[in-house]
Write a protein that binds this DNA or RNA. Structure first.
Length: 460
RNA sequence: GUGGUUGUAGCUCAGCUGGUUAGAGCGCUAGAUUGUGGUUCUAGAGGUCGCCGGUUCGAAACCGGUCUUCCACCCCA
């Protein structure tokens, strides 16, 4: 053992137990994606750099993992570029591929490339890892999975309503009650900026507003001032900092505030539709809340904006987000295809479920029954019975060597095996097997011919 | 990318202002118990103190660098 091996910053190994828990979440998410009519696709881990670069802003470009070209790539760089030592001009010459940064941009590329084969409206889901050269923190990794569901080619607000229901269905099924689905609309943000006279400073305005719950009203004002938003404009927007009351109350205040803005009024109208529809349909465990400070990545959202907050009391950033983008495929040359989608933050949902102890304990039951090994003859007899159990769909195994019973039972205990079958010389002679319930220690004897009874016990 | 923080046994952590052979609990192995785990008792094995370099008679401890962890920015799931 020369040096202890390690894995790169922000990456993780997953143990059998962890994979079991992750698959539990994946399976529930997939189940609901499918019942809502979404179809799965997959795209490559890496794309051509030009597909990704420039789609996430300067900040995003910095976080994209670039892949070096193959071969003697340095020798192909001209001397001027090489000696300039400027990463921005050198990188494109030595790297033409990059790891996927999210699933939305590759999806847009997919839609454009396959537009003639796709039946629109196209509802797709995609669950794959993405990579970001970010600095890791709790719940933030350099390699993590995204679970996205998007609809392209449908302008109806019914999609937004369904996506809210989809969030609710998944979190309810996971037993994660008390989540808050925060809802806003880019048109409202644009309307506010218009009304207060900061139309040309929309991004700075919303980025600052988005931090309200983090840095408080004073902090937001300070940041807005620093970003060149006038004091009178901030004053006008001030009532929105402390917007309170039910969704409908907030909406009526907003409607009044935005009356002069055509864009803003349209946004209010859209929110009213979604809120009314959800009120009529009712959610199971989540609550839907208007949040005018919600901005998220403004790069491509044009309509509804979603973000899901973990139940109160759990310290965790958002566990999901999404929104509508009217022209995502435009950057790849396909105009007028509207899309709307949501994403589940698997790693964070995992942490939240862990913290609230919401994983079912059957998950780590990776083996339902273990046969104790007494020696060659007994083991061969066990193998015959084992085969029948496996054929009946039961996860069963035999201890590979005739080690001490103490050791074999301890192994069963550590693996959390609920039943252990013992077939020793006595049992072999009488054609019986002894089944031990590891939870309460009770032992029951069955004849070899009564295997159906054992199967019923194990399946029940 | 900026500022800070962390690293000691498989795991969770002690280890004082530098001073012999670096500790505990849990886990692991063996025995008490040659057909029974989860409880108890006894014994044992496990560590180039993240890595590289420096200061010193002497470094786990001090200094520099580097990697890693976590945190605040930035940004975001």
């Amino acid at each position: 053992m020369a040096q202890k091996p390690s894995i790169p910053k922000g990456t993780r190994d997953f143990s059998p137990v962890a994979v079991g828990k992750r698959n539990y979440i994946f399976d529930i998410v997939k189940k609901h994606f499918r019942t809502f009519g979404f179809q799965p696709i997959e795209t490559p881990s890496f794309e051509n750099s030009e597909t990704l670069m420039g789609k996430y802003g300067d900040e995003g470009d910095r976080l994209i993992f670039k892949i070096l070209n193959s071969g003697d790539f340095i020798s192909k760089v001209d001397d001027v570029t090489y000696s300039s030592k400027k990463s921005s001009s050198l990188t494109p010459k030595i790297s033409e591929k990059a790891l996927r940064y999210d699933l939305t941009v590759p999806f847009a590329r997919y839609v454009v490339m396959h537009q003639n084969e796709i039946d629109f409206p196209f509802k797709r889901y995609q669950i794959q890892p993405v990579w970001r050269a970010d600095r890791p923190q709790k719940g933030r990794f350099r390699e993590f999975y995204q679970c996205d569901a998007d609809v392209v080619g449908a302008n109806s607000l019914l999609q937004e309503v369904e996506l809210v229901q989809l969030y609710d269905a998944v979190f309810t099924d996971l037993g994660l009650t008390g989540t808050t689905i925060k809802l806003n609309n880019r048109k409202i943000l644009a309307g506010i900026a218009e009304v207060i006279g900061a139309k040309n400073n929309l991004i700075n305005f919303t980025v600052a507003l988005d931090k309200l719950d983090k840095i408080g009203a004073e902090g937001v004002k300070a940041e807005m001032l620093a970003k060149g938003i006038t004091e009178t404009a901030i004053e006008k927007a001030a009532p929105l900092f402390s917007l309170k009351g039910s969704n409908t109350e907030q909406l009526s205040i907003l409607a009044e505030f935005l009356a002069a803005s055509e864009m803003g009024s349209k946004g209010v109208e859209e929110l009213v539709f979604i809120i009314d529809a959800i009120a009529a349909l009712e959610l199971h465990s989540a609550s839907l809340a208007i949040d005018v400070t919600l901005a998220r990545g403004l790069n491509y959202y044009t309509g509804a904006i979603f973000e899901v907050a973990a139940p109160e009391g759990v310290k965790m950033g958002s566990i999901g987000g999404g929104g509508r983008y009217d022209d995502l495929t435009g950057i790849f040359g396909l105009k007028d295809v509207s899309g709307v989608g949501i994403s589940f933050g698997l790693d964070r949902i995992y942490l939240v479920l862990e913290e609230l102890d919401l994983f079912p304990k059957e998950i780590d039951r990776s083996l339902q029954v273990l046969f104790v090994n007494f020696g060659e003859k007994e083991a061969l007899a066990s193998l015959g019975l084992l085969t029948q159990l496996r054929a009946a769909g039961i996860t069963a195994d035999i201890y590979p060597s005739s080690s001490k019973l103490q050791k074999q039972f301890k192994f069963a205990n550590n693996r959390k095996v609920p039943f252990v079958v013992t077939i020793g010389a006595n049992e072999l002679a009488s054609q019986n097997l002894v089944v031990k319930n590891m939870e309460n220690g009770e032992q029951t004897t069955y004849g070899f011919k009564e295997l159906d009874k054992l199967i019923a016990l194990l399946l029940g």
